[in-house]
Design a protein around this nucleic acid. Structure first.
Length: 157
DNA sequence: GCCAACGTTGGC
DNA sequence: GCCAACGTTGGC
């Protein structure tokens, strides 16, 4: 089983939206970056995902979701009226894919970037890398454990 | 709102 | 294949 982190702007789709969604599940559409797409293609059912709020105040890891469906074509790339439309995508070669994720839990205390930055064990975390913009990224088992432990302690180190 | 970092596009 | 221009992401 693998660990991941997925970003979403809470104004667009928050972890509360995920919790309120039918079957607490959503398709993760709109990813238009090849590296992020490739990570989604390698996801397996049962993989665990940190739900991250980007462009938030503050930006933070807010909880956990789980992969419940393996990668399949992202139909929004084929829809000219969708903001994620990609004219290069066709039904034969959809280019872009997505997975389905289901809500698992929300942290009592979200973990902000400033809480995570000083943690030695997280120094190499992709999320904390300078200039990192990857919206879907792998998390190592050690990082996963550490972040989870921090969440249990209420966000403080 | 600013702007650094990054990915993509397109002229050559 | 290079690289300048441009658009986007996302922290601050």
């Amino acid at each position: 089983m693998s660990y991941w982190l997925m970003k979403s702007e809470p104004d667009v789709f928050s972890i509360d939206d995920l919790k309120k969604a039918p079957r607490k599940t959503t398709c993760w559409d709109g990813v238009r970056n090849y590296q992020a797409r490739n990570f989604m293609k390698s996801m397996e059912i049962g993989d665990q995902v940190f739900f991250y709020h980007s462009n938030a105040e503050p930006s933070c890891i807010v909880g956990i979701a789980e992969v419940v469906r393996k990668a399949y074509p992202d139909h929004t790339a084929l829809d000219p009226h969708d903001s994620h439309f990609d004219p290069k995508a066709t039904p034969e070669k959809p280019i872009w894919e997505m997975v389905d994720v289901r809500f698992i839990r929300k942290f009592d205390q979200p973990l902000a970037l400033e809480d995570l930055r000083p943690v030695a064990g997280l120094a190499k975390m992709e999320l904390l890398r300078r200039g990192s913009r990857l919206s879907v990224q792998p998390v190592t088992p050690a990082e996963w454990k550490l972040v989870l432990k921090m969440a249990e302690k209420g966000g403080k180190k």
